[in-house]
Amino acid sequence: MESNAISKRRFDAKGFVSKYAMYVILIVLIAIFGFAEPAFFTGKNFVNILTSESSRGLLALGVAFCIITRGIDLSLGSVMAVSSVFSASLVQKLTYSTLIIPGLVNFQPIPAWVAVLFGLAVGTSFGVMNGLLVAYTKIHPFIATLGSMTIARGLALLFTNAYPVPMLREDFTIIGQGSLFGFLPNIVCIFLLMAIIANILLNHTKFGKNMFAVGGNIDAARASGINVERTLVLAYTWSSFCAALAGVMVTARSASGIASLGEGYELDGIAAATVGGVSQTGGVGSIVGCIGGILVLGVINNGLLILGVSPYLQKIIKGAIIVIAVVFDMRKVARKK
């Protein structure tokens, strides 16, 4: 809503340029890659980009909420791993289930949806914990989520003893491997659906409006009667729910629960949200921007790969583009002293 409104305002040349800087970058990147390598410019490749970015994209959708409240969530990658191994452990083909929970052989197979809910619940519980810590102990979100990042990773490793949880049943793996109408992978559908939900939450509910207020000025929000603590808990809960869902998705796709899943993904998520204009100074951001940020990073990843650029050089280019995009963005939302 906020960003729509800004774009409607006329005669704001500076605002216009910085508002669309990211899309300009995106179009330029697509043009460059398209010219350099025709294979880039195919519908199939765009689906590929969406597919490979959907899990990181989910993290961006999640962490955007935290960043808008002027926080951060570093635990997302580890939360993915937790939801991965916990959900996977319930849907292994019977012969394998007994490796982790012996005696399971005597039971009926657990339905896939129960496994999904279980993974989501365990993963999301970390967000509740993060939120409570941030809201009530007032420790910095960076530290709170750094703690839970380590704890969640430890839990995933302990639970599996660092072994993969392989051989998952097909009624579960279809979540990650199936596709809608034969060309749009389920995980892309999930991502797009979540993006719509995130947009509704952020712009069309009281909770979303409260988050902007809390991030924009926490004291003013409190003085306006907003339940700041509840708002924060909800933001972190949403964030880890997105991560847990990403964990389930990737697990279903690779048909294996992995305790080391998602290492460093939280930073990709943060980068995408940031490139997409979600400001670290709080109170600013949109889901549309977030998706733009995800696409910028996805196009870079994919384009450089197709061009056969050295993976090491890829990292350098990606880092530079993140910084440049944010420099542009800073001009837009610079807080007045």
Partner: peptide, 13 residues
Amino acid sequence: RGTGIIPVSSVAS
């Protein structure tokens, strides 16, 4: 500034 305005939000918000 401290407990009143939410600087980066619109007048309407």
